[in-house]
Nucleic acid binder design. Structure first.
Lengths: 218, 218
DNA sequence: GCGCCGTTCGGACAGTTGTTCGAAACGGGC
DNA sequence: GCCCGTTTCGAACAACTGTCCGAACGGCGC
């Protein structure tokens, strides 16, 4: 019974992972269930044993990706009070997962509007709490006198980070560590205005290398 | 004869403008030619008198948008030598058009991969020359010792600017002028590191208010 | 060996897609 | 008033879409 459950979960996970690849390559609407059937080796109707609809496939991919991103951020931020450190951890967490799961993250970033109804709302809610965390960190960081509109700053940060699926190639470009460092520095100096003022020692250092290569296996 | 030509052009332009709206609302693949027929009031087969295929519709929208963006940038940069000033003008030009033509620009940003073959290549070529201009400005700006990888910096800037279709609402958010100022400051300080050093007076000032509200009418 | 139940799949369904074709309507110049 | 090139459209096409149904399969407990 338990081994059957595990087999079921494994197969579902495999379907989701491959579906994410197909969606990221062709786009959600252009990709057909038949494409996913072909890519997974599971028959057309067989897919419907694991999932109720094509939309649920997209939902579970987004839910899974965003859930992991959020959970890991919570874990990383636990006990940390210094906002400089928090920002650094957020950027690093975000980019590490983005680069480590480019296909899935492209689907998260690019297919935001492809969900409808309750599933759309559920994912949007996660997105809202994620950006609220970021916005609060920036508010602490600017401490009273934000020279730059907080909404503009928050979404500029996300823009820098989420845009990478449009250009970043792990083979050609700088490694993730440097990418995270560059984007962190770019944003922080721009936002704070003065270089590293008030920053406690170690706040800008990289987090210990907790790689966790795939969101599908923890 | 000439008035007929004008009528033809006007109608084609109207079709493209409305098609851009439909594409931006439903996405290119989810929107059907029938949707565009309904929105424009032109019959299904009537559309094919103006355009050879659905893909050409998308192509002409992207071509038109990018072409205007590039042409106006060229015009603005003509004769300007100071890289600080150039950057400011680039950001302002980009954001002004983005905000003034949000629907079309969303189609440019979001449907980059929806074109194929030669049309894709043609638009990609425009995109390449646009980012080359930006990259060269950043190279001049950093003058020999770029603390941040140039590719990372360039695409971070584009990320900030192009992401706005995901969050910016003209009614709720700061005006375009402030948006451009914030993003310009955010990026410049982050990239240069020291505040406004070496910046000639007036370089950070806004360009004269040449609004040009729509790319479809010049 | 038998029956059960979780799993798999071929084949079909109705609806939608982009595109085409031939004919009709239009309008300016004779 | 007629003619001819431009413009418009209804109707149809084949291909493809997401989803569903009923039958078959497989291995496990008895």
């Amino acid at each position: 019974m338990s081994t059957a459950r595990i087999a079921y979960d494994d197969k579902l996970e495999r379907i989701l992972r491959i579906a994410a690849e197909v969606f990221s390559e062709k786009g959600y609407h252009r990709a057909s269930i038949r494409d996913i059937s072909r890519a997974t080796g599971v028959s057309l109707s067989g897919l419907y044993y694991y999932v109720d609809s094509k939309e649920e496939l997209l939902y579970r991919i987004q839910e899974h990706g965003f859930g992991t991103l959020l959970a890991n951020l919570d874990e990383l931020l636990a006990g940390v009070t210094d906002p400089h450190r928090k920002l650094r951890l957020l950027v690093e967490n975000h980019l590490r997962y983005f680069v480590g799961n480019m296909k899935e993250m492209k689907v998260l970033s690019h297919e935001a509007e492809s969900l409808t109804g309750d599933m759309r709302e559920a994912v949007d809610a996660m997105k809202r709490s994620y950006s609220r965390i970021a916005k609060e960190i920036l508010a602490e960081l600017s401490a009273g006198e934000p020279a730059i509109d907080l909404r503009v700053a928050t979404y500029s940060l996300f823009g820098m980070m989420n845009w990478i699926y449009n250009w970043y190639h792990p083979d050609l470009d700088v490694a993730v560590e440097e990418l995270a460092e560059d984007i962190h520095r770019l944003f922080l100096r721009g936002f704070i205005g003065r270089e590293d003022a008030d920053m406690p020692p170690g706040a800008a250092e990289a987090a210990p290398g907790d790689t966790r290569p795939s969101i599908w296996r923890r």
